[in-house]
Design a protein around this nucleic acid. Sequence first.
DNA 1: TGATTTACGTAGAACGGTGCACGATTCTGG
DNA 2: CCAGAATCGTGCACCGTTCTACGTAAATCA
Lengths: 338, 338
Amino acid sequence: MADGYDELTGRVTIRTVAADAGVSVAAVSKVMRNAYGVSDALRLKVEASIEKLGYRPSVAARGMRGRTFTVGVLLVGIDNPFLPSIYQGIESVTEVSGYKIMVGVGAARARTEVTLIEQMIDNRMDGLILVASQIAGETLEHYARQIPTVVVGHHEPAALGYDTINNDDRMGAGLAVKAFLERGYRDIAFVFPTDDEDHSADVAPQREIGYRMAMAEAGLPARVLALPNYSAPREDRIRAILTAPDRPRAIFCWSDLDAIPLLDEARRLGLRLPDDLALIGYDNSPMAGLSVVDLTSVDQNGPRLGKLAAEALFTRMNGRTVAEHILIEPKLVRRGSL
Amino acid sequence: MADGYDELTGRVTIRTVAADAGVSVAAVSKVMRNAYGVSDALRLKVEASIEKLGYRPSVAARGMRGRTFTVGVLLVGIDNPFLPSIYQGIESVTEVSGYKIMVGVGAARARTEVTLIEQMIDNRMDGLILVASQIAGETLEHYARQIPTVVVGHHEPAALGYDTINNDDRMGAGLAVKAFLERGYRDIAFVFPTDDEDHSADVAPQREIGYRMAMAEAGLPARVLALPNYSAPREDRIRAILTAPDRPRAIFCWSDLDAIPLLDEARRLGLRLPDDLALIGYDNSPMAGLSVVDLTSVDQNGPRLGKLAAEALFTRMNGRTVAEHILIEPKLVRRGSL
DNA sequence: TGATTTACGTAGAACGGTGCACGATTCTGG
DNA sequence: CCAGAATCGTGCACCGTTCTACGTAAATCA
């Protein structure tokens, strides 16, 4: 097997190519990485052999010494309708750069996410984009020392070791409140997800702050209603909110994920939107645009977030060490629920 | 650096552990893989060091010789609401077995998917689960020779090199037609996705066959209406279908993905369901259950499909070579649209 | 008790790449 | 025309594991 071709597995290695092209292994490696010191003649020979043999470098072997040309993307969960647009934005950048993406799917639990991050480090990915991670900032700093990291949908403006890319959640909340006020609503509540873990850096608390600020500015009392995230009493709680005698006339909901069930139950109860209840969600998910749903929602511009995140990751992988914290402007998409 | 500890990266390697525990590198490796020939005393010593140092083996390095304990899951796209349930099923199996999952996201294009499969092979994953892949059976055979492979949502009952796990799409279509017939509908159309690529192994054509068979059995003429998949004339086509003078009274739609926009437009046009138009979709996606949507749909039991796929993959990775082709029974979930 | 077997632990060669150090050319400019 | 600088290509030592082959000590058997 002096030519590096393993007849058993049929695997073509860098040695197969080198033998076929009549050059050294190092030369082939150089061509692959288009490193310095390769003549056109050599390049052509090698590329011909690569093409002929269908050679693909082993990412595993590469990972042991050099780069893998792979970035890991960690998503909170797979069922969140907000993720595809961000993913798309990331992909639009990696696609042209020749980098590959590997996705890890968390289950909105910090423990799982930590495991996935470690897995990506162990796989020697070149960089990491964490989307809506639930992990504490301190822990993130720890991992970010081991691998270039960019975080999307998680506010950590003072982080030193990694970048954060977010939409301005406070401003988004402000847009929603302002829209209600313009239409004359005064009794405006905020629906907030309760959770077992504490994550003040997550987007929801930021939206709450924005809501409170806007309400205070208008001289109105804040009213925050909790809604359990996944547990069974969720539907009961929704019904309770909607049937309470002091039901708010307007609700700003931290996410479409909750706004849509809320809207759904409201319609079932015979409430007319926006006359009986005005509702604004967040994320402008595809479902919100259905005419049967017709939910007004704050749009974060997912593709842009993803694009910025990927771009930040690349500059970081190329040596930038000072952290960048980008905030982009959300905008309100008006529909029938307000 | 004789102890294997790299002070620069801070990375703990198998050598660090071996030095700390005062044993050989090979011994540590044995403990990690719980291989044969390890005394309790040795195991304890090594495990203590592993724990103390927080050692995690490098997947990249592992991939060069042995297994990576990672399986790749290739998903058609990230925005398909049918995928989370399957993924969940897969995860429920890998979770307890200590295997990790890496996800590749195709863009419903065979070219992209092929690249991702190669990437997973290059990453030395131990096995592959392809969900709703668009790749031709012949090509799949080629890759399946290089890595244990299980395919979900793609009918290839004669495949030799890989397993297929599916719900019985023909039966599912039959259930839908039968439900219409029971309610007295006779004018039943099938809405079918048109696509640039040809994929007779995909689920939609199977559903079409099931539909045609059930209609023939009832002595009724089949009526198939095409709907472009992503392109712009899509909305126009939906409107055309719904406003045509000979608009069908009942529509069986190959997927909720199309059924929901169809339903949405129907409501917008003032049609009442099921009186003016009866509609059944496929996949029973979360959206179908919203009371504002309230779409009757065929349920494939995604979690079960995922679970079976993962189990098949594990037996295959453990040496099984004869292909398995499993078909499970779908069931109709009745809601207001019929 | 001596001869096998069994159990345990180790040395060292892979695995498939990368990248440094270096030698051999070919280009420069004075 | 020659010294020095670019340019090009190669040899080889890694990277962090696995795993085969082998040595040694303890256990079992006749």
